[in-house]
Design a binder for these strands. Structure first.
Lengths: 332, 332
DNA sequence: TTGAAAGCGCTACCAG
DNA sequence: CTGGTAGCGCTTTCAA
């Protein structure tokens, strides 16, 4: 099923069919109707590869995420996709599962697809890969990695502030022993959160004790990390978790150990995904506006003449603490 | 950056470059090395569209899901993708959000991409769309919709048995007033689950009362449905939910109404996703093997000479009840 | 307003 | 083992 068959059936040239397909308004209505009829009768679907190749431009946007299973990433995807769709673009997602090999593969695949733009929402990224993207002239937007440059936009969250506010709040409630639960502690945003945690603890509570532990980015990972902290003999008054998913795992671990939240121990999440409201108890968290991130990402990749152009810039988002029932005054 | 430039730089023909790209073992090692060097120096990435177009075959598999945010779908995706990757295929996912317009768009897009195969994991599907897929000669595998035919495989779960076992179990515990919480009750699998629910209730407990309610497939949806049931004046001894996500929403609603689970009311989920173990209380659920579904889907699309060929068949999966803490003997 | 034809970048067949 | 070259299905000038 090709353009040519449609053209033959409609008694026109392939050029005309192409014009109809692309809605070029220079086709006589009668001709257009005939072509449309042929298309419908033949159940014709244009070959996107041929189209992209001949046209020299793609209308698909790529997105690469570390862990689409974590609703944080999914929410960004959803928002980006909504923007894309309303502007006539498609988005293709790849999920790397925090695996750098898969990241490399995904990036190359996106370059091979000659995507119109690429949103990279991963924890860590080899600068060499960014170079490849730059060499391929792919417009990119990075979340939390890289530096702004030509064709490369940056969106980041001021974790430091988010964590500072959390620690300050807990400190005010009388907490004095903190545990920090992250994942793959070597990863950039995690470690930024971790270092922000350490800095905050020192600043607001120089005399307090703390401990950190990390595992996979999942419920299970949060649970294991918490169990390890507890097994080490340290008994924190508060667990600060790198995200809400891990916090839910921590809640389970505490419950299994017979500790009540927030009566005995306080727990905080991060990101403020929907689950934070539905966990038991609901989680005090730090809101990161995924919708806005998705919108900004699209705007950075496909600038709109109407809106201010943010391509090539660095955008910093200020997070906000959301109080719920998982935190309370520390037991004395 | 094209094949030709690489060829020029390596001092060979484009045909030879193509051969080394495709690992055809008939290239002299020395030549191959030169080509590889040129590729690396130029940072060349082959244009996938040109490749697919010229080769006449794609190595990407498509998957369309109703709601990738629900871990059930994501787990199937993950499993399918693992299979695909290990066989040299890529997978492109689309998420329709239960919107039939988006389903149509996604299907056409996949046809336009000339995917090697398409896995459709949605709740409902217009037979006309299946016809389009058939006309496009796209190998397909459907989960819970359609009928097996040429190039079309079917995977389904025996919901009836799953629900029957759940109802029987609850009935044995003395439950007598059931509520069924679903989403978009008009959708096929939901309604299959709903009708299975009704049939089971009548069979195991002909004298009991029941009520059904439905909403969006999300935490919020489950919560709203439960609140509606309660507001109607009906007070069930057990809530049977169409999946674990909605069950978590139900748990929240019950807690807000001051009802304890399982002391006052029992709640069951379905699918047995990871969250079922991490909710509070952990959910009694019905296990659906997403891994197996993903593996079967791949096998149906890309038959392996070694394995038995399941393409064109109908495969029925038997679910199994998993008991956890959200169910208990009914209050008298 | 329409058609003819030259590519887009790659694969695959046929020679050599 | 390597090169030449005819397409793959579409878009896009350039003419008509």
């Amino acid at each position: 099923m090709s353009l040519e068959e449609v053209a033959k059936r409609a008694g026109v040239s392939t050029a005309t069919v192409s014009r109809v397909l692309n809605n070029l308004e220079i086709v006589r209505p009668a001709t257009k109707a005939r072509v449309l009829k042929a298309i419908a009768e033949l159940n014709y679907q244009p070959n996107l590869h041929a189209r992209t190749l001949a046209g020299g431009r793609s209308n698909t946007i790529g997105m690469i995420a570390s862990n689409l299973e974590n609703p944080f990433f999914f929410d960004v995807f959803r928002s980006l996709e909504a923007q894309a769709r309303s502007h006539g673009y498609e988005v293709v997602v790849a999920h790397t599962d925090y695996d750098s090999e898969r990241l490399v593969r995904s990036v190359r695949l996106m370059i091979g697809r000659r995507v119109a733009g690429l949103a990279v929402v991963v924890s860590e990224m080899d600068p060499a890969l960014i170079k490849e993207l730059h060499a391929a002239r792919t417009p990119c937007v990075f979340y939390d990695v890289g530096k702004p440059q030509e064709r490369m936009t940056n969106i980041r969250v001021n974790y430091r502030h988010g964590i500072e506010r959390l620690v300050e709040y807990l400190h005010d409630l009388g907490h004095s022993r903190f545990a920090f639960v992250g994942h793959h502690s070597t990863l950039a945003p995690t470690s930024e959160r971790e270092s922000a945690f350490l800095a905050s603890v020192k600043r607001f509570a120089p005399a307090v004790e703390w401990r950190t532990d990390a595992d996979r980015d999942s419920f299970e990972g949060g649970k294991l990390a918490a169990l390890r902290v507890l097994a080490s003999g340290f008994s924190p008054t508060a667990f600060i978790c790198v995200n809400d998913i891990m916090a839910v795992g921590v809640l389970r671990a505490l419950r299994e150990k017979g500790l009540r939240v927030p009566e005995d121990v306080s727990v905080t999440g991060f990101d403020n995904v929907r689950l934070a409201e539905f966990s038991e108890p609901p989680l005090t968290s730090v809101h990161i506006p995924r919708d806005e991130i998705g919108r900004l990402a699209f705007a950075a990749l496909i600038p709109d003449k109407e809106l201010p152009n943010i391509a090539g810039q660095e955008i910093v988002i200020e997070p906000e603490v959301v109080l719920r029932a998982s935190t309370a005054r520390a037991k004395r």
